[in-house]
Design a protein around this nucleic acid. Structure first.
Length: 217
DNA sequence: AAGGATGTCAACCGCCCAAGT
DNA sequence: CACTTGGGCGGTTGACATCCT
């Protein structure tokens, strides 16, 4: 007769954390699937691995992202796209999960809802987002890869510094490399163009973030 | 003050890939 | 070469905190 193993899910208790930490410190990582049994944990190997990698590892850096880290995330995202593990690799002590969460909460929330950056997230906030999506956006953002761009017919490209305000009524945000930017002649009513690196850094640096957010809601 | 809306982040799920057999 | 398995990854969800009306 096989043993019945009850697998626990959800938040980790301090006791579980200690068990996992103690075990890894003592015996190292050898097989995540077998480890829980030996460590006395009612968790899956995957769950243990995730907990260790994202939280318990001694070299995991916690706390808010510094401005340097923020800038790096933005630049790496533009280079690599949603390869969070690769981006995290450029940020010592940060995990892919952290980078992903940071991007979604601090960057995308301000920009994604006003453009088709990607498909809407299926979550409990969809209802509200749908309502917002019906309204005509004042801001258009294109964060497609620079290599995807085609010929340009941009009338003007601007960058701005930290204290400069953006005309949200007539602004089109284009990709980071102006020379590769694609034509957006099919978008009516916009006459300013801003490269995304500049825009995102502005958004992060500047207190206008709130203003920008609500401007579009 | 209360209840709903929203923000944040830890954790889970499912898929993919590489290595081993 | 096909199959299995373990680990890694990105997408998504859920719980809780905070904000807003």
């Amino acid at each position: 007769m096989e043993d019945i193993i009850i697998i626990k899910k959800g938040a980790w208790s301090p006791e579980e954390d200690q068990k996992l930490k103690d075990y890894v410190m003592r015996f190292g990582i050898w097989n995540w699937n077998l480890m829980p049994k030996f460590a006395g944990l009612s968790r899956t190997g995957k769950s243990c691995r995730l907990r260790w990698m994202n939280y318990l590892r001694p070299d995991v850096k916690r706390g808010p992202f510094s401005m340097e880290e923020r800038e790096r995330v933005i630049k790496m995202y533009q280079q690599l796209g949603n390869r969070w593990a690769a981006i995290a690799g450029e940020l010592p002590g940060r995990t892919d999960n952290e980078v992903k969460n940071f991007f979604h909460t601090h960057l995308k929330k301000n920009l994604g809802q006003i453009n088709n950056i990607d498909a809407p997230v299926q979550c409990r906030r969809v209802k509200k987002q749908k309502k917002k999506a019906q309204e005509k956006p004042k801001l258009f953002v294109d964060i497609s890869s620079p290599t995807m761009g085609s010929s340009s017919s941009i009338s003007s490209i601007i960058t701005f510094d930290q204290n400069e305000k953006i005309d949200m009524e007539k602004t089109v945000i284009l990709e980071s490399n102006p020379s590769l930017s694609s034509s957006h002649s099919n978008i009516d009513g916009f006459d300013q163009f801003v490269d995304t690196t500049s825009f995102w850094l502005h958004l992060l640096n500047h207190a206008n973030r709130e203003e920008l957010y609500y401007e579009n809601s």
